[in-house]
């Protein structure tokens, strides 16, 4: 899908440019934007280093597992199929905690651990369980509190106030997470998404 979109943008741009006589501008844009990519990513380094440095302290001080415990009360009811005390729940909570702090690199292995634990509870090994779908839907809705990369890009582009988007981002991401939970709960009742004889 991304392959098609990328190619269509490129090819239709070149064709339209040739027809409309903007072909010099097309060449110019291709070369200058390749350079721009480097300027942008180098501008990111400082803010990313600051943020990941702070988050390393959060990780090593055990704040992530502390957050996971705090989340437990809200999150537990979303996974009724997981037995009390099963390690799947711990891995899910740690993954959410790491995501909330923007620790993408730490969140992924925790998420894979959660999926492996959920798979142990799964009677049909090739079919997703309700808990897996809920876990991933919440993940795809994004759980970021501080969008560090976005702030870094805004900073390097010379924004007067790079962090002004934090409040609106928290609202939008909360809305998308609530939508994910509601969508999972409704869709799992739809017959084509039900597991035969399961759950």
């Amino acid at each position: 899908m991304i392959n098609i979109i990328w190619f269509v943008l490129l090819a239709s741009g070149i064709i339209v440019g040739a027809i409309s006589g903007n072909i010099d501008a097309v060449t110019e844009a291709a070369i200058s934007n390749a350079e721009l990519a480097i300027t942008i990513s180098l501008g990111l380094i400082g803010v990313m280093a600051l943020w990941l440095g702070i988050m390393k302290i959060a990780e090593e001080s055990g704040l992530v597992s502390y957050m996971a415990k705090g989340l437990s009360l809200i999150i537990r009811p979303l996974f009724p199929e997981i037995p009390q005390g099963h390690p799947a729940m711990g891995a899910i909570l740690m993954n959410f905690g790491a995501n909330l702090l923007g620790l993408g690199n730490a969140a992924t292995p925790l998420g894979i651990k959660a999926m492996k634990e959920l798979q142990k509870l799964n009677p049909n090994k090739d079919t997703a369980t309700n808990s897996m779908v809920m876990f991933l839907a919440i993940n795809t809705s994004s759980l970021t509190i501080i969008p560090a990369t976005v702030i870094a890009i805004r900073t390097s582009a010379g924004s007067a106030n790079p962090t002004e988007i934090i409040g609106p981002t928290i609202i939008a991401t909360t809305a998308s997470t609530i939508a994910a939970i509601i969508a999972v709960k409704i869709l799992q009742r739809v017959s084509r998404y039900r597991v035969r004889g399961g759950e």
Partner: peptide, 11 residues
Amino acid sequence: LVSIGVFRASG
């Protein structure tokens, strides 16, 4: 950036 840049510059 290259593909969107080409798409924009061409009109």
